[in-house]
Nucleic acid binder design. Sequence first.
RNA 1: GGAGAGAUGUCCGAGUCUGGCCGAAGGAGCAUGAUUGGAAAUCAUGUGUACCCUAACCGGGUACCUAGGGUUCGAAUCCCUAUCUCUCCGCCA
Length: 425
Amino acid sequence: MLDIKRIRQDKDQVIELLSRRGGEYPIEDLLKADERRRELLAETEKIKAEQNRVSKQVPVLKKEGKDTAELFEQMRFLSDKTKELDNQVRLCDEQINEWLLGIPNTPNKDVAVGRDETENVEIRKWGAVPQFDFEPKAHWDLGVALDILDFERAAKITGSRFTMFKGLGARLERALINFMLYTNTTEGGYTEISPPFLANRKSMTGTGQLPKFEFDMFGLKEPDYFLIPTAEVPLTNVYRDEILPEEALPVKLTAYTPCFRAEAGSAGRDTRGLVRNHQFDKVELVKLTHPEASYDELENLTKDAERILQKLNLPYRVIELCTGDIGFCAAKTYDIEVYMPSYNRYVEISSCTNFEDYQARRTNLRYRDGDGKVKFVHTLNGSSMAVGRTIAALIENYQQADDSIRIPDALVEFMYGTTEIKAGK
RNA sequence: GGAGAGAUGUCCGAGUCUGGCCGAAGGAGCAUGAUUGGAAAUCAUGUGUACCCUAACCGGGUACCUAGGGUUCGAAUCCCUAUCUCUCCGCCA
């Protein structure tokens, strides 16, 4: 969430930055409630101070054998008064908090201003788009033909937007996970975590999925847990409510988890194949950094993610999301898009974001600075990679004229030496 | 699932029976200073967070002893609920 003090002090700037997202937020109402809260607080604290002062005298008076009945009568009045005021303060707090949780992060001031994804900015391109001397197939056709993907039976087991991987397809998925984790933990220097795949409401609120996007989550009836939509949730919450020593920064974590998304707003989009499923595997990167280092760390994080595609030799481009397209909690985001022949364009496969202190405030995740002060860290995350989309990209970019799929060199050892996937194998 | 025990500051740990002077003893750690050629050891001092008032990171105030309620003039201390941890039993990958 945003810092209420910052909203108070730099109201115009906050409103201006938020307006770049397109959308209106109850800043004025918030400030009015905040002012009211402080008035009430001053009043109640004054009474409480009086109560405390008198209370301290009670044992003294009793020792002297004096009658306290009248005093208690007055105190009872004050006590009722504070209860009433406390209640009003609590109502203010709840309202303020509700508003704050519903206001997105301010985009970084240098992020390109734009309405929607059409105004995103291409930063760089890597690799050559494959040229086929035959008609390339979409992964949902080729994968089924090779009997490594099965959408129909997955739908039978569960429903639409689920995929079953079979044989070398299942091995390919597992190989990619291992390859990604191996690369991240060795060259990347990240610490591997294997977290819970269910998260409670507090964790989900900390990273910003709740309260606003509950409709897009799969939740359990009892207990009040949610299937994680990304490893960002458990990883960013690892150190929630903690104060880290400055030397511990940056904290660099990586994890493989399945991800579960209701895709509530995506009816009719990407209905075929692996691009948009209710369940998909992903290897995630999360960094907790010193505030001054977070933008450098975002560049590094993005390069860490790109490294995976480079090793797999998959063509991609990096784009900077404009203010109208960045996520709710984000201050700045680079998307990495892999070339997908069936779409005849680049498709998002990773999203690398600096949240600045927005999530850190929600998760109360702080560090002790060199001057002894406690401050909020900056949080970042990025996918490295979404495994399902990586498989789709591999199938399509590595397909051969005979309908076989070549396995990228970097992946062969993780495939137990398998170098190609062919029909009938 | 059944029975019991517990949760206190950065950590360890008193206090809880017998509610008040307990933001909380003591120790460790850490910081600063003294001592030293330098270090260790020793000694001295200091050492939570959030919010409010204030020009102020000076000062004052309020809250916080897992969380949320309750009793009371007053709660770390009494009562209720939840969560988590531990022990035993049962069940189980």
